[in-house]
Write a protein that binds this DNA or RNA. Structure first.
Length: 823
DNA sequence: GCAAGGTC
């Protein structure tokens, strides 16, 4: 028997548990001569073998996309296994050789689409008719789970259709790569949009059309538009602070929302100020009502990968995934790449849950010196929890997730965690805590609303007769009566002794830019943003865009192409679309920008995966690829027809008229620089944009220096893009905490040496502080006003001609002063 | 020499 794992680490774990004690380079063996071998991720990739036909210099041949694709070896690289080098080429050659030698082969690759692909790419290259069995480790890789899976090996044909759906996905996406070639060609020629034209950087100048990438960019654009269209961000309202008769401090806020006052009316602080001027601390303020209401808060779902990434605010999605992978390999948590938020029912037994809780207690207590007591507080709930958590069979949705992954959850492995990093412990305990809360079920919460008002108030802020102030407090409880008495003793008619009447700015609940760590979750939940309920349902079922393992890479790709930028606002790493990002969206038809495309694909994949007839599944795969390629060919033919004849950059066809703002900008620039304005420019959107770019002023170096304090790149490419300039101005205005750019740091270090001023730590942390420091150094290096005057006086006295350049250097100014003084 | 997404 031959067992094939996805990579060495997994093979090593399997060997240990299944007692394959002999290691003969580079695989594991047992007494009976069975072998555990492994792959190293994907060792094959699809290719069309027509590199001379599909080139970057001619888009014409792309009108017929390849009809035949081949799985070819990936580029070899070496990994370290037991302190020795091992080439992926060796694995690609020897694992199939082992497959030929064995009658029974066990597929122990990861339990997902890609795992099936990794296995069958090797298996297909072996060309053997051996029996294949599946080892399913989706529930985790503890000793007992491995034994259980090993005892329950099943016919691998049950999951093989996933291999066909993986291939369909792979080849479909390859088609998008080919379209990207065509788009890049026309983009560089200037046919698509000025911001996409030309290429100084081979990577940045690629006009990407990814099935996942572009819809995500569209989502980011939508959010940016929402954020940037908000005019009113805060209102100004009165509040009062005071004490109850028993001495408890309370604060009441003017309840403008209950009164239905429009936020726009409260944007000016003078209104609130005028109101409080009429009030005095001696005025009578009386409690009007105390209302307790019970609400039910449903339990949170268990973590999927994306929610975990969103919750780890101090880590990037990639860092979070790395930590999860490490915890998985240590056996502490289930498979880390998952979109599921529940456990299969057969794991929800009191025995299994008891074991889980016992491990959690043990594991977290083993590092009690490194976690806070409150962070372990949830452990106390365990005893009462199990009964509550057991599945309610009356509500059986027959969700067959036993074959799929489970939610991110702890395993019953008991371990001493002291070797874990602090981040690993933090992530592990967060998973345990969420797991517990999810099992806890819904909670009751008592919301107490206390309303009070000035007895003599007749006009309110805007003439309203009733002018209530209020505050809210929520308490988790299951007993309404108990919580009533527990809460601050306040009753209707009580008088509050006022200490303070003032105005405060109240932030309105307005949309925010997406933070970097939220993007995976936005991709997963993309169905929420689709209005068509059928499509929304499909997108929810197919788990949105991308996969749990790849969502973190999308932002990286968008950044690589300069389609988005990250700017830190209020300590959030905000993702903001650039002008270039908007440009690519403006050139593409909806089909490429909509998440619906992925939903349709996933729907087809589901049909392939659930097809019991493998021959039929294979045919469906081929049909799918052909269908996608035909769609892409249609678009490529359209591009060639529209731009093919004239690739010099002047587009013809259905160009739109420029907007009023654009015409204004063009005219303004023409006046400013006294340029002649060709009439065509005012009649074509693309010509107007292009004219604006080619004639735009070179940015003044002092302006460039100003923008440097934003901490964002000030390369010429960035400053060509008006939105990117805006992003920089916003960052400076909003006192962003962006770190200094590399260029800025180098400058600071150089000036620090020249001026002899030590760079403070804070200057290394943020661009704005770094900018302050650079200014300080520069001042040290230039003469003071007093020194300049002294030199001028001396020079006049001695009739000594002074070059203006001297005044730029403090050193030279001082030298000259000394020289003239000794004269 | 640059391409997509998914892995590692």
């Amino acid at each position: 028997m031959l067992i094939v794992a996805e990579k060495y680490r997994m093979a090593h774990v399997l060997a240990k548990v299944l007692k394959f004690e002999k290691f003969s380079w580079p695989f594991f063996y047992n007494e009976a001569g069975d072998v555990i071998a492994y792959s190293q991720g994907h060792l094959f990739q699809p290719k069309h073998l027509k590199d001379d036909l599909y080139t970057w210099s001619d888009p014409k041949p792309f009108e017929s996309l390849p009809t035949e694709l081949f799985m070819l070896p990936t580029v070899d690289y070496t990994i370290r296994v037991r302190k020795r080098s091992l080439s992926t080429g060796y694995l690609r050659e020897h694992v199939p050789m082992l497959m030929q030698e064995h009658d029974v082969i066990v597929n122990a690759c990861d339990p997902d689409k890609e795992g099936e692909r990794i296995f069958y790419d090797l298996f297909n290259s072996a060309q053997t008719s051996a029996v294949v069995l599946r080892l399913d480790l989706s529930k985790g890789i503890t000793q007992s789970l491995i034994h259980a899976a090993y005892d329950n090996l099943f016919d691998a044909r049950k999951t093989k259709a996933k291999h066909y759906s993986a291939q369909a996905r792979l080849c479909g996406d390859l088609g998008y790569a080919l379209l990207t070639s065509v788009m890049t060609f026309y983009g560089r020629k200037g046919c698509l949009h000025p911001l996409l034209a030309g290429y100084t950087d081979k990577q940045k100048s690629v006009v990407s059309v990814g099935r996942v990438l572009i819809p995500v960019l569209q989502l980011i654009d939508d959010q940016c538009c929402l954020v940037e269209n908000v005019k009113l961000k805060q209102v100004h309202c009165p509040y009062v602070e005071g004490r109850t008769e028993s001495g408890a401090k309370v604060t009441f806020y003017y309840d403008w929302q209950r009164l239905g006052l429009p936020a726009s009316a409260l944007s000016d602080p003078r209104l609130a100020q005028k109101y409080i001027q009429q009030k005095s601390l001696n005025d009578e303020f009386v409690i009007e009502s105390v209302i307790n209401e019970m609400h039910v808060v449903s339990a949170p779902d268990m973590y999927d990968t994306a929610s975990m990434q969103a919750d780890m605010k101090e880590l990037s999605p990639t860092e979070t995934l790395d930590v999860l992978q490490s915890l998985y390999e240590k056996g502490l948590i289930t498979y880390p790449r998952t979109d599921e938020t529940a456990l299969p029912d057969d794991d929800m037994t009191s025995d299994k849950l008891s074991a889980l809780f016992a491990s959690m207690d043990n594991n977290l207590n083993s590092v009690s010196d490194r976690t806070s007591k409150s962070s372990r507080g949830f452990l106390e709930k365990h005893e009462s929890l199990i009964e509550n958590a057991l599945p309610d069979n009356s509500n059986n949705q027959s969700n067959d997730i036993s074959a799929a992954h489970t939610a991110l959850s702890p395993t019953s492995a008991q371990a001493n965690l002291s070797n874990l990093t602090d981040t690993e412990i933090a992530v592990y305990s967060k998973i345990c805590e969420r797991f517990t809360s999810a099992l806890e079920g819904e909670k009751s919460v008592c919301i107490t609303t206390v309303t009070g008002k000035f007895t003599n108030d007749k006009n309110g802020m805007l003439g309203e007769q009733d002018a209530p102030f209020s505050f809210e407090k929520s308490t988790y409880t299951s007993n309404l009566e108990k919580s009533k008495s527990k809460y601050i003793a306040l009753n209707e008619g009580d008088i509050i002794l006022l200490d303070k009447i003032n105005v405060r700015a109240e932030a309105l609940d307005i949309p925010q830019y997406y933070a970097e760590n939220e993007i995976p979750l936005v991709m997963l939940k993309v169905g929420d943003q689709v209005s068509d309920p059928v499509v929304a349902k499909l997108l929810h079922e197919t788990k949105g865009l991308g996969s749990a393992s790849t969502r973190d890479k999308i932002v990286a790709s968008l950044l690589k192409r300069d389609y988005v930028e990250i700017s830190i606002i209020d300590e959030r790493r905000c993702i903001i679309i650039t002008g270039k990002g908007k440009a690519i969206l403006s050139t593409l038809p909806n089909q490429f920008k909509s998440p619906v495309t992925t939903a349709i694909w996933e729907h087809e994949f589901y049909k392939i995966e659930t097809c019991n007839d493998l021959e039929l599944a294979k045919q469906m795969r081929d049909g799918f690829i052909r269908k996608i390629y035909t769609q892409l060919e249609t678009y490529i033919k359209f591009l060639n027809k529209r731009y093919g004849r004239n690739v010099q950059g002047v587009s013809s066809g259905n160009d739109t008229l420029p907007s009023k703002e654009l015409i204004f900008k063009v005219k303004q620039l023409a006046r400013l620089k006294q340029l002649e304005l060709p009439i065509q420019v005012l009649n074509s959107n693309s010509l107007a944009e292009k004219w604006l770019l080619t004639n735009a002023s070179v940015m003044h170096s002092s302006m460039k220096e100003q923008l440097e304090q934003s901490g964002l790149s000030t390369c010429n490419n960035a400053l060509r893009d008006e939105r990117r300039i805006d992003i920089r101005k916003q960052a400076i205005q909003g006192k962003s905490s962006n770190p200094p750019t590399q260029a800025q740091m180098l400058k600071a270090i150089k000036l620090s040496k020249q001026s002899g001023v030590r760079m403070p730590e804070k200057a290394k942390k943020t661009a704005s502080e770094c900018h302050v420091f650079i200014d300080e150094c520069k001042k040290k290096l230039t003469p003071s006003d007093e020194q300049i005057n002294t030199l001028k006086r001396l020079a006049a006295k001695h009739r000594y001609p002074v070059s203006k350049l001297i005044y730029k250097s403090r050193k030279q100014t001082l030298n000259l002063i000394n020289k003239l003084r000794t004269k």
